[in-house]
Simulated assay, not measured.
Amino acid sequence: MDPLWATIAEFWWIGPATIGTGALGWLGLRRERRERRRRIELDAARLELRTAKRDAATARAAVRVARTELDRLQAERATGRASATDVAAARRQLDRATDEVRVATATARSRRAHVTAARAALPAAGDDAHLPVARMMRAHDEIIARWMTYETDPARLIAFPAMTDARQPLTAAFLAADKAAREQRPASAHARVTPAQFTAYRDAVAAAGRAFAVAEAEAWRQARAAGDAPARPQPGDPDARTTGAPVREQWTIIAQSLTQTALARGTEALARVVSARTSPVVSDAASSGTASADDGAAGDPDAGGGRRVWPVPRRPRA
């Protein structure tokens, strides 16, 4: 038997085994990536909890050091080698360290609650629509869409100019927060994201949402003060134009009101301009007409009431 065929017959299983191993490894890697995307929020919460615990431990160690330093200075104060100022400074340092421990302990409790919430909100396997990164990207898109309504809706653009004016401090703060969120935004919902990157993007989206809410409240306040927008509908509001009406109907009412106001102001301005232009012409015409009538009455004996009377020609006799 040919040695080549003998070798192939003996080791024929190596090729299929290699292909099968590669396929299993690729499937396992894909499953691991999907599981990592599903648990990214939980992993980020656990990372924050570990950081908070480390900060709390560091703060407690700082308290022990500050207390030891205070005891040393108090002992030296008794022997005259330390002043009362040094003791007071050490006591203030101990108070600051104690406050840091309280803050770090509260932060650790909060992070522990976040871990519990992230574990409860863990999406089911295969539910790509509710993955943490996709959910954060949708929340970011909603903030941008809410702001874009002030750019594209004519009624809102007229009633709330502060929302599109970057010179307004609160609007500028929102634009800066949105820019930071865009910089932290992943390329897609299936992009590879580390827990630290997810935490940074989540915090940036939350900051952008808070900044937008503050800027929107200020824009509404300015619009209400200028009389360009109605008050927000409140429970039990007797005004049937806004209470219980759909959002589109409310903005239709606002647009009609603003259009009527603009037309009224434009009509008043046009009337003032026309009046200012025609007043000198009317005065000149009246004065010239009076002068002509006086001249006619004085120079023509046949004139009656300022009108010139022409003689009637007589027929010749036959």
Score class of each variant (00 low, 15 high):
residue 213 A to P: 06
residue 23 A to G: 00
residue 109 R to T: 07
residue 251 W to Y: 13
residue 176 A to I: 05
residue 298 A to D: 06
residue 74 Q to M: 01
residue 291 A to R: 14
residue 286 A to T: 09
residue 106 A to Y: 01
residue 305 G to E: 11
residue 64 R to T: 10
residue 39 R to Y: 02
residue 203 D to F: 05
residue 295 D to R: 15
residue 141 D to H: 06
residue 58 T to N: 12
residue 182 R to C: 02
residue 133 V to L: 13
residue 163 M to P: 03
residue 7 T to I: 10
residue 190 H to W: 04
residue 261 T to Y: 04
residue 34 R to H: 08
residue 244 G to L: 00
residue 289 G to A: 08
residue 181 A to I: 03
residue 272 R to D: 12
residue 67 R to L: 12
residue 303 A to F: 01
residue 216 E to A: 11
residue 302 D to V: 02
residue 124 A to Y: 08
residue 205 V to E: 00
residue 269 A to F: 05
residue 6 A to I: 03
residue 41 E to H: 11
residue 284 D to G: 08
residue 78 A to R: 08
residue 36 R to P: 04
residue 166 A to D: 15
residue 310 W to N: 10
residue 282 V to T: 15
residue 8 I to V: 11
residue 264 A to E: 10
residue 17 A to G: 05
residue 148 M to V: 12
residue 295 D to M: 09
residue 278 T to C: 11
residue 118 A to L: 02
residue 256 Q to L: 11
residue 187 A to V: 13
residue 133 V to P: 04
residue 89 A to G: 01
residue 186 P to F: 04
residue 173 A to S: 15
residue 17 A to H: 01
residue 315 R to S: 09
residue 14 I to R: 07
residue 197 Q to A: 13
residue 158 I to F: 12
residue 298 A to R: 13
residue 176 A to C: 10
residue 273 V to H: 10
residue 218 E to D: 13
residue 99 D to H: 10
residue 136 M to E: 15
residue 199 T to M: 09
residue 110 S to Q: 14
residue 151 E to M: 09
residue 228 D to N: 13
residue 226 A to I: 05
residue 84 A to K: 08
residue 214 V to F: 03
residue 38 R to V: 06
residue 250 Q to R: 15
residue 108 A to V: 01
residue 37 R to N: 12
residue 114 H to G: 13
residue 169 P to E: 15
residue 25 G to T: 13
residue 3 P to R: 15
residue 253 I to M: 08
residue 237 D to I: 01
residue 164 T to R: 14
residue 294 D to R: 14
residue 16 P to S: 11
residue 293 A to W: 07
residue 173 A to D: 05
residue 258 L to D: 07
residue 81 R to D: 05
residue 85 T to F: 09
residue 288 S to N: 02
residue 164 T to P: 07
residue 209 G to Q: 08
residue 243 T to F: 00
residue 278 T to D: 13
residue 134 A to L: 04
residue 178 D to I: 00
residue 251 W to V: 04
residue 237 D to V: 02
residue 179 K to S: 08
residue 297 A to D: 11
residue 281 V to S: 12
residue 155 A to L: 06
residue 289 G to T: 07
residue 167 R to K: 15
residue 180 A to P: 02
residue 90 A to C: 12
residue 57 A to G: 01
residue 44 A to S: 11
residue 144 I to F: 00
residue 64 R to L: 03
residue 274 V to R: 04
residue 59 A to D: 08
residue 270 L to A: 15
residue 177 A to P: 09
residue 187 A to T: 12
residue 44 A to D: 03
